[in-house]
């Protein structure tokens, strides 16, 4: 079943509504249609898993919601704010106050400690978050002064999560957050994301090719060839530590 209703109600705390969103890349002679008329409504506060094979457009979907790419056509409203027509400057401001990113390969600054990586974002974006508290929240109170090279993959990803949260965003966007991690570590990171989603009411969108993760989501969105296949709520999401792949 496909949810194609366009939800026009403005919802606080990270409600996302896409209406007829297209994204086309010009790659030489043949254009690449990464998104083909995607219309989607994501209620605030949900943990959404976006599934799809490679080239389905799931990452592009995340990118346009996160403001690091712009749609070719259509509208994207986040809490009623239409970001689809923003120029680069306004997109920067949007990301600054609204969005936190977590990437597959962590993308931490290798020359700063865990605490400094989180503090850097708070400092540069005027975020109100306390870096130490953020890291305590993700269970790294004993690793504050460690550099990324001295942290495990899971710990680095936790630092990335804390960094994303340091700005108190309304959206937490995660691109393959467990892609570089083993099963146990991946579960613990997923558990952290679920915990933060529930405690903070933070809309969390998680892109993955790993269908096993979908079972813990509040909603699963499926993409194929740039088109929305389905957007369905999950009746009984499982705990992260029950996820297995």
């Amino acid at each position: 079943m496909t949810d194609t209703r366009v939800d026009t109600m403005v919802r606080p705390q990270g409600a996302v509504v896409l209406d007829g969103v297209h994204k086309t890349y010009d790659r030489g002679a043949v254009p690449v249609h990464a998104l083909r008329g995607v219309s989607l409504s994501l209620p605030a506060g949900e943990l959404v898993v976006v599934l799809g094979p490679s080239g389905s457009g799931k990452t592009t979907l995340l990118n346009v919601i996160g403001g690091i790419d712009s749609p070719t056509d259509g509208s994207i409203r986040v809490d009623g704010e239409d970001i689809g027509r923003y120029d680069e400057h306004r997109l920067t401001e949007y990301r600054r106050r609204t969005v936190g990113f977590v990437f597959q390969f962590f993308n931490l600054v290798p020359t700063l400690t865990a605490l400094e990586n989180v503090a850097l974002i708070a400092e540069l974006t005027g975020g109100a978050g306390n870096a130490r508290r953020m890291l305590e929240q993700v269970g790294l109170e004993d690793r504050l002064d460690h550099f990324p090279a001295a942290l495990s993959g899971g710990e680095q990803q936790r630092v990335a999560v804390a960094r994303a949260l340091s700005k108190r965003p309304r959206l937490l966007l995660c691109d393959e957050p467990t892609g570089a991690l083993d099963l146990e570590t991946g579960r613990s990171v997923l558990g952290l994301l679920r915990q933060l989603n529930r405690e903070e009411g933070l809309t969390t969108i998680l892109v993955t090719h790993n269908s096993a993760i979908a079972a813990m989501a509040d909603r699963v969105v499926r993409m194929r060839s740039g088109e929305l296949v389905s957007s369905e709520p999950v009746e009984s999401p499982i705990d992260a530590d029950e996820v297995s792949w």
Binding site: T92, Y94, R95, R96, F105, N107, V109, I121, A164
Partner: peptide, 11 residues
């Protein structure tokens, strides 16, 4: 990647 992440975070 490091600088792009900072930009993505709104720096």
């Amino acid at each position: 990647a490091e600088l792009a992440s900072l930009r993505a975070a709104g720096v």
